[in-house]
């Protein structure tokens, strides 16, 4: 049957045309197409890898930053704490000093007051004694101005003596 018998002329033509087509397309089409595709794929892969690397670098940078921040925060906390204790210490010392000074001053004042008091009392005593002496003298002078009165006094003394 003709349908199933390949024509020899057609076989030859097909072989020639197909082979030529393969070679032509290889040179003018598949070569450039495949190399361009490959180039693009390599490019995409490289950019993806670069992006990935940038991402990981960014992440490490971020974690570094965070670490630094954390350290700084810790340091700040320590500094604050130190400052606080120092301030407290200073305050405490100042308070102690003040109380010491004030108590000393009070003591001094007390002592002075005591001394003054003593001095004043002594002075008063002297004054009183002097006054009494004056009074006594004046009394004596007035009472013993005459014989009778002198005698009465002596009598009285004597009476007192007798009583004793």
């Amino acid at each position: 049957m003709e349908l199933l018998t390949p024509g020899s002329g057609l076989i030859i033509w097909q072989a020639i045309i197909f082979l030529a087509l393969i070679l032509l397309l290889k040179k003018f089409a598949w070569g450039p197409i495949i190399s361009s595709l490959k180039e693009r794929e390599v490019g995409i892969e490289e950019s993806l890898a670069a992006a990935e690397q940038a991402k990981s670098e960014m992440a490490s940078l971020k974690s570094d930053n965070e670490k630094l921040l954390k350290e700084a925060r810790l340091e700040r906390d320590v500094m604050l704490k130190d400052a606080l204790t120092t301030a407290n210490k200073i305050k405490e010392e100042a308070r102690e000093e003040t109380s010491k000074i004030s108590s000393k001053m009070i003591e001094d004042a007390k002592a002075t007051i005591e001394n003054e008091k003593k001095a004043a009392l002594a002075d008063i005593k002297t004054q009183v004694s002097l006054l009494s002496l004056d009074i006594a003298e004046k009394l004596l002078r007035k009472q013993l101005g005459n014989e009778k009165e002198q005698k009465a006094l002596v009598d009285e003394f004597v009476k007192d003596l007798n009583l004793n």
């Binding site: 045309i17 197909f18 030529a20 087509l21 032509l24 397309l25 003018f28 089409a29 598949w30 070569g31 450039p32 197409i33 361009s36 595709l37």
Partner: peptide, 16 residues
Amino acid sequence: ALILFLVFRAVANGYK
């Protein structure tokens, strides 16, 4: 063959 050649040369030129 001609159509194939023209089409795929055009495709290849597209890459350029």
